[in-house]
């Protein structure tokens, strides 16, 4: 997993701003998206969907510039949309149409001739694991299957960029795992850059190569996840998680007396600082407490996210 370079950038935004009525959704957003899977992470209302709408040329920014596949979506909206595969977060599939008919039709609408569209519709439905189900009306399918139909519809015209808006929205954990694995596979096998918006840290962490964290209309973090993990590994910013068999507050008091930053919650204790373990062990022994677990916590993606986008805390 590598951070994108300028040469591979498929989306660049510079000072992008947008307000809806009195609400500022994007406030000078700068970002670059390259190859691989990019997670667009932010709490609900952070501007992810607005940004996607702008990428497709559906909304004009109030100011700033945006280029998608080298084009300005405001000026070349139809051209951009012909080369982008988009799967919206909302249900977008008429229930009574067979999956194959729908995907074929959307291929045609993206400019594929009838025969090519028919062939590719069948191919992509096999690719997303719906080959046997392709003749089923979409309304009879499960949520996970419908999500796969949306992926097939986004892929049918062989896009140069795939944009997935909350692709696991409304899915149960099993279906979610399946869709995320599929997204990863599509990016690896088809080598199509993918932008995947999500408000779930865990799915971005396991699916994406790069993460862009949006907060209050700005990109507050834009980094490769491998790089982020490496930095966390090397970071001095660690804490020690201690679990006792009794209430942890007396131990927290003792540790604070020794100059450590300790916070107790019931039988658990989090101690900040560089290598506090010897002091903690000594204090536990002095107080005669039963130690159940002691674990070093490194800085996680969640910690980074919550520092950068505190409004995402739920």
């Amino acid at each position: 997993m590598t951070a994108p370079t300028l040469a591979t950038q498929v989306v660049t935004a510079d000072g992008l701003a947008k307000t809806w009525g009195a609400r500022t959704v994007l406030a000078g957003l700068d970002l670059q998206v390259g190859a691989g899977v990019t997670g667009l992470l932010g709490p609900n209302g952070s501007g992810k969907t607005t940004l996607i709408g702008m990428m497709l040329g559906l909304h004009a920014p109030d100011r700033g510039s945006l280029r998608v596949l080298g084009l300005d979506p405001r000026e070349a909206g139809p051209l951009v949309r012909a080369r982008v595969g988009y799967a919206p977060q909302h249900d977008a599939l008429p229930p009574e149409i067979e999956a194959l008919d729908l995907v074929r039709h959307l291929g045609e609408v993206h400019g594929l001739p009838v025969r090519a569209s028919r062939q590719r519709a069948s191919d992509v439905l096999w690719l997303v694991g719906l080959g046997e189900e392709r003749r089923r009306p979409v309304g009879t399918m499960s949520g996970g299957q419908r999500q796969r139909v949306k992926l097939a519809a986004a892929l049918v015209h062989d896009p140069s960029l795939l944009v997935l808006d909350e692709p696991t929205n409304g899915l149960d954990p099993g279906q979610r795992d399946g869709v995320l694995a599929l997204v990863r596979r599509l990016a690896d096998e088809l080598a199509v850059p993918v932008i995947m918006s999500s408000h779930l840290l865990e799915e971005v962490g396991r699916t994406c190569d790069q993460v862009i964290v949006l907060s209050e209309g700005r990109a507050v973090l834009q980094q490769g996840l491998a790089e982020l993990a490496h930095e966390a590994e090397e970071s001095e910013d660690r804490s020690l998680l201690v679990e006792l068999d009794v209430d942890a507050e007396p131990l927290a008091v003792r540790l604070r007396e020794r100059g450590l930053d300790a916070t107790a919650t019931a039988r658990r204790l989090v101690v900040e600082g560089a290598d506090p373990a010897p002091v903690v062990l000594e204090a536990v022994e002095q107080l005669g407490l039963g130690l159940r677990r002691m674990q070093v916590r490194t800085r996680s993606l969640e910690d980074v996210f919550l520092e950068l986008a505190p409004e995402g805390r739920t």
Binding site: L56, L58, G77, P78, L79, R81, A82, V84, Y86, P88, H90, D91, A92, L93, P94, P95, L106, V109, H110, G111, A153
Partner: peptide, 18 residues
Amino acid sequence: CTDRRSGLLGLYFAAPLD
């Protein structure tokens, strides 16, 4: 109505149509 209710309109507008 069907396009709007089913959400297909969103997929059309994400295609070269306006």
